[in-house]
Nucleic acid binder design. Structure first.
Lengths: 168, 168
DNA sequence: GAAAATTAGTTTAGGCTTAAAGTAATTTGA
DNA sequence: TCAAATTACTTTAAGCCTAAACTAATTTTC
């Protein structure tokens, strides 16, 4: 008796995978983590070297750049995926550098709104330009279609992870 | 005169991309970072909750697990992609927990070799088993071929980044 | 073979990060 | 209405992480 090609493939897959084996996923996760670390470490190094700024500060400024009217600390902490207490500290340091300003929320006195100062906007523009070129340089080994494909698959992964966590 | 399909595509690509524009790469990087953060934050949370252990300690133990004869601190710091000083501190804490042991290198008196203790091996085995199932759960939205494709593309990216950094 | 350079690891100062506990303001609901 | 619950943010303690300076041992170079 002959097997269908697809049935043969399924059989091979079964053989390769013992029950409860998820080595392929684990390998993917380790590779994702390593790739991320490799890029992130270099970005941190260059931000420090060229602009004497940390990645968290750059990230916070990048968030504010997209919202000219400013943002509450809570919104910042959500977008940056860090705790409120973390944002409090970052905001303190950026205020001291005078690249952001903070004002009271009009109707909610618990809340504060921070936004880039003119100095902050200028400084961020310079940094963002170089930052983009660093990324381009590091990603130069990928074709445009690689970039699109990878972006799409990571989107799928991210959505899947969110769903898994929401369901758990 | 008719254009070849590929020439037409090239023309479109040119139009979409102003010179020096690398928005697609930037978007990919932000997505990679966000996806990584999403997964990593959850892994950290679960490791703490279930085993009262941090990700760096888990990572260090995972490295040692693959080398039953142990490893020098320098080798650990290379594999973990962190500084020597960082490893010194982690090793101190793991020694205090008695999950690793440290001995002098036979011929090089500057060097020390650390390895998992029996307690460490047992503890790590329990953690690794659950860890693998968490990854499987979070990656369940991807098919086997997605996993393979993503692993391959990340490999290409990682190789490209290393090449870009070596050349720079 | 000894000075110079390198290597392995540690220490230190400072920033990032979290969880947990705390304060003050706002919203809910009985 | 007003007490309870929630929300926005801050503070604290402890761990992670890095760069830079340091110690001690080894290797290189002359």
């Amino acid at each position: 008796m002959e097997l269908e090609p697809s049935a043969a493939l399924d059989a091979e897959t079964k053989i390769a995978e013992a029950p409860g084996d998820h080595k392929a996923e684990l390998r993917l996760w380790l590779r994702l983590l390593a790739t991320n670390t490799l890029i992130e470490t270099e970005i941190r190094r260059r931000l420090r070297e060229r602009f004497d700024v940390t990645l968290p500060r750059f990230d916070l400024m990048a968030q504010l750049e997209r919202k000219p009217h400013g943002m509450t600390l809570g919104e910042l902490s959500q977008r940056m995926m860090v705790t409120n207490g973390n944002v409090t500290g970052l905001v303190d340091r950026l205020l001291a550098e005078e690249v952001i300003s903070r004002r009271q929320h009009k109707s909610d006195r618990r809340s504060h709104i921070v936004s880039l100062t003119e100095k902050g906007r200028r400084q961020f523009a310079r940094m963002a330009k170089e930052h983009e070129s660093w990324i381009a340089e590091m990603f130069a080994g990928l074709s445009q279609s690689d970039v699109a494909a990878l972006t799409g698959m990571l989107g799928k992964l991210k959505t899947g992870v969110r769903a898994a966590l929401a369901g758990a």
